[in-house]
């Protein structure tokens, strides 16, 4: 069980000029156990700020965030985070990166290496465990980051546009890898993206943010694993049209009221 609840969460900060900016405003949200929720919205809408609040990296200015009813107080390995930027420590070999969280938790060396190897094999990097991160490609580094977080067995998985910088093919491969790991371990997932197709492919639910507020929250009931065909079904297209409008891309959506 890992139900995440956000109740009237707000986050403010002051610009250098002194103006108060409301990055997240009165967000209330419940993410049920094992649910895969994608948080989508235009740049600067507060998605990443909200994710960092749930990670405990920044304390919320107002409201409360809890996991299974317990208010969060700072970061915890129970809430693993995959960053948009490279977070793999360049000064540790691949295997040491993957086992680092276990080391922090005091897991004995033989055991943690065994667990790290298992996850490295699962993400297809069993043959590079002794490599330095500089010897790996961008896609491989993301696999290491995903393996590192899953090796720590988080109950909640937070992902901040993790595949945004990757090429199309690598991104699709990593989507499949992520879904495989999620299906096996079933953490509760909050995945930030601004890619509508990515959200449609992965999510049970898509939450839309605009100017710090939640403006839409929709269930995606398409059967899993989703394919190109399933994403072309009328239900999927209807969701996509609404999401594109939320992102200010209404001109890309066919006006059904206009004559063809």
């Amino acid at each position: 069980m890992a139900e995440v609840e956000l109740r009237n969460v707000g986050q403010f900060f002051r610009r250098s000029g002194g103006a108060l900016v409301e990055a997240v405003a009165d967000v209330s949200l419940v993410i049920r156990s094992h649910e895969f929720v994608c948080l989508i919205g235009p740049s600067g809408c507060g998605k990443t700020t909200l994710l960092q609040l749930v990670a405990g990296l920044t304390p919320a200015s107002q409201g409360q965030i809890s996991v299974d009813g317990a208010a969060i107080a700072g970061p915890s390995p129970e809430r693993g985070l995959v960053f948009q930027r490279d977070s793999v420590f360049p000064w540790m070999r691949t295997i040491d990166n993957v086992s680092y969280g276990l080391k922090c938790r005091g897991v004995e060396k033989t055991k943690r290496i065994e667990i790290a190897r298992q996850y490295l094999r699962q993400v297809g990097l069993g043959d590079v465990e002794r490599s330095w991160p500089r010897e790996l490609s961008g896609g491989m580094l993301k696999r290491v980051a995903v393996a590192t977080v899953f090796a720590n067995s988080p109950r909640v998985l937070l992902m901040d546009e993790p595949f945004a910088a990757l090429d199309y093919v690598t991104k699709l491969q990593l989507h499949q890898l992520l879904l495989t790991l999620w299906e096996q371990h079933r953490p509760t997932v909050l995945f930030v993206t601004h890619d509508v197709d990515e959200a449609m492919l992965l999510a049970d639910r898509i939450v839309v943010m605009k100017e710090g507020r939640v403006v839409d929250d929709r269930k995606i009931t398409l059967a899993r694993r989703r394919t190109v065909e399933s994403l072309a079904l009328p239900e999927a297209v209807a969701h996509k049209e609404v999401l594109l409008r939320h992102l200010g891309l209404g001109e890309l959506v066919q006006d059904r009221t206009a004559p063809l």
């Binding site: 990670a55 990296l57 390995p77 490279d86 420590f89 680092y100 590192t148």
Partner: peptide, 14 residues
């Protein structure tokens, strides 16, 4: 890079 510090903290480093 502060990302490394944040990554360490979320992995459980004190």
């Amino acid at each position: 890079d502060p990302t490394y510090v944040a990554a360490g903290r979320t992995l459980g480093a004190g």
